[in-house]
Design a binder for these strands. Structure first.
Length: 583
RNA sequence: GCACGCGUAGCUCAGUGGAUAGAGUAUCUGGCUCCGAACCAGAGGGUCAUGGGUUCAACUCCCAUCGUGUGCACCA
């Protein structure tokens, strides 16, 4: 916001001096002790105009100072060493800028002028398999990107995209058949209604999948039975579909519970199976263009390009046994999304290891018109979650850690720390603090990097953590509640350096959110809200608001706290963190 | 082997081509009669993997090398 104002001002000065205004970009200063903002354009402009950067900068600054109203905005505009233009704002201007934000519910963040329609694919849990730690990142990052995009004015449709149509379903079905062969689901001559209650429990399911999955790797007969069941299911075998429905219903209940606990929600609970109705349409499109051909027994489509640095294998549409894979369902899903929403973007928040798969799917979809030309497809990858040893995370017993167990651990840890406090809702605080710890620890890592899952870090409440952010906000609320009798007044020029820094930080919000959106990186928001929190902690350490004698100053500080609360609140909401009353 | 990530303080990580590379943690020091100490203030800690190149300017862009992770058609 502030940088935009200053850039406009400098553009005028550059133009008046006879230079291209594209050089007039103003950014936050990298040397806070020298100035608040800087413009580096003269160094790059030097070549074009064949003048030393220093001379250019002097000319621009001279014009700048002559501009109408510049005195009211700038306290100083100086040229430094090679050709930097260093700018510092008048405290009065800064204060009035803050005062304007007081009444702006969006704290100066504009809405996108031409909003995008975005389909966001995240979550991706598998039916019949418990959620594990690996599902944490996609859920949390995806949810955050969804909230961020919406705040900026875009229309976002979040789709969980359940893994409910692949081989794992065939595995579970074939195993149930092996255990209970007499069930009506397996009798091909059965034409009556199937039982409304499933012949197994959730616990059974959770035990069946890992067992049969292991078995299939060792025993070819088991594997073959699973494949056959998959094929039959995909081709609509009545009994299998009925059984499949039971599995989905049972499993989905548990999945919903887990996501609700994380505060993650989806607009669509579609799955691979949902797109099954569109597989035929996609096949037709591919056949019309003569793209589909037989290779090594499978039906495939080429997606390689002449200038590829390495050979990209064709995408498999039908396996040699006739069943479809996730590439096929992904294409059909894209076809459906194009029909339903005609999106500008389809974003996939999925583990980086899937990069090749998405490259194949995206190429196939764009090459053959399965999505419109204006639709951009993007894989938002993230690193794998490793243990302290740098290898994929396992529990002490060597197994996969369940997501629900992880949340339990973090919440139990939080519960221990708040036991000695009186008169607060322990369960509420436990939940909010625990989740904040987990989410902030995860989101603050840049998503592409591999992720060290460190329990100590997840249970730490000190320093750059979720609880620190919450603590800061709890204190703001606490102070505000004690100041209820004081009406907020106009924001006065900063009384100290910390207060000035808060003003400047508040002014950075639009830039921070914009960057986070462009980079698809919630970590930028984490960094921003942490820096703001640090300043706020410093602020109420340096100033005692309750005891302030000067009423106007006190009222100004109330306004500042309200503004800071608003800015913080925007960030917290984007990150999915909730502030408890006390903690 | 080929391709794509990643390599920054003891550890975990930030860092939009710009000036003296920053946080947290750990270590050391100081601060609660005072709106909440889950806090604040200070100290020490660096060959930005290595070597070239582009540029007025490189942690940032390009190339090579080393280390590390991941992926390379019928799982998702």
């Amino acid at each position: 916001m502030l940088t935009t104002n200053l850039t406009e001002l400098l553009q005028e000065a550059f133009t008046q001096a006879g230079y291209d205004k594209s050089y007039a970009v103003v950014v936050k200063s990298q040397r806070p002790e020298l100035c608040q903002f800087q413009c580096n354009g003269c160094m790059s402009a030097s070549k074009q105009y064949k003048k030393p950067p220093f001379v250019l900068a002097e000319e621009v600054v001279a014009r700048l100072k002559g501009l109408e109203g510049a005195d009211a905005i700038l306290q100083s505009a100086e040229v430094a060493k090679p050709g930097f233009i260093n700018l510092t704002l008048q405290d009065s201007f800064l204060a009035s800028a803050m005062d304007h934000l007081r009444t702006d519910g969006r704290a100066g963040v504009g809405l996108a002028p031409s909003p995008y329609t975005i389909v966001l694919d995240y979550g991706g849990p598998n039916i019949a398999k418990p959620l594990h730690v690996g599902h944490l990142r996609t859920a949390i990052i995806g949810e955050s990107i969804k909230r961020l995009s919406r705040f900026l004015g875009h229309e976002v449709i979040g789709d969980i995209h359940l893994g409910d149509w692949g081989l794992q379903m065939g595995m579970v079905i074939s195993e149930i058949r092996r255990r209970q062969p007499d069930l009506p689901y397996f009798d091909e001559n059965y034409s009556g209604a199937y039982p409304s209650e499933p012949p197994f429990t959730l616990e059974d399911l959770e035990e069946i999948y890992p067992m049969v999955s292991k078995l299939a790797k060792e025993d070819e007969a088991v594997n073959a039975a699973a494949k056959e069941a998959t094929f039959d299911l995909q081709n609509g075998r009545r009994g299998y579909v009925a059984l499949w429905k039971h599995i989905v219903d049972l499993s989905l209940g548990d999945i919903r519970k887990n996501y609700a606990r994380l505060g993650v929600d989806f607009d669509l609970w579609y799955g691979e199976s949902t797109s099954n109705a569109y597989v035929e349409d996609v096949i037709e499109i591919l056949q019309e263009q003569n793209a589909l051909y037989e290779s090594q027994g499978a039906m495939v489509v080429d997606v390689g390009r002449p200038d590829d640095k390495k050979e990209i294998p064709p995408i498999i549409i039908y396996k040699s046994d006739g069943s479809i894979l996730y590439g096929t369902t992904d294409l059909a899903t894209l076809y459906q999304r194009a029909k339903d929403f005609d999106p500008d973007y389809v974003l996939y928040v999925v583990d980086s290891r899937q990069a090749n798969h998405f490259l194949q799917v995206f190429r196939c979809a764009t090459d053959h018109g399965i999505v419109a030309e204006h639709t951009k497809l993007e894989h938002i990858g993230f690193g794998t979650m490793n243990g302290k040893d740098g290898k994929p995370f396992k529990t002490r017993e060597g197994g996969v850690l369940r997501l629900s167990d992880l949340i339990d651990m973090v919440e139990n840890n939080a519960r221990e720390k708040i036991l000695d406090k009186e008169g607060l809702d322990v369960e509420e605080v436990t939940h909010k603090v625990g989740l904040a710890t987990l989410k902030f620890a995860d989101l603050s890592n840049y998503r592409m990097k591999d992720y060290i899952f460190d329990l100590d870090k997840f249970s730490s409440f000190e320093g750059k953590t979720g609880p620190y952010i919450l603590y800061t906000n709890v204190r703001i609320n606490n102070i505000l509640s004690k100041l209820e009798g004081t009406v907020p007044g106009p924001i006065l020029p900063a009384a100290s350096e910390v207060e000035r820094q808060i003003f400047l930080k508040v002014g950075e919000l639009p830039h921070a959110l914009e960057t986070a959106f462009i980079e698809r990186a919630p970590s930028v928001v984490c960094e921003y809200v942490y820096e703001l929190s640090t300043l706020l902690n410093g602020f109420y350490h340096a100033h005692h608001i309750l005891n302030e004698k000067d009423l106007e100053r006190k009222q100004s500080w109330v306004s500042l706290l309200l503004l800071a609360k608003k800015v913080s609140g925007i960030c917290l909401d984007i990150l999915g963190l909730e502030v408890p009353e006390r903690m």
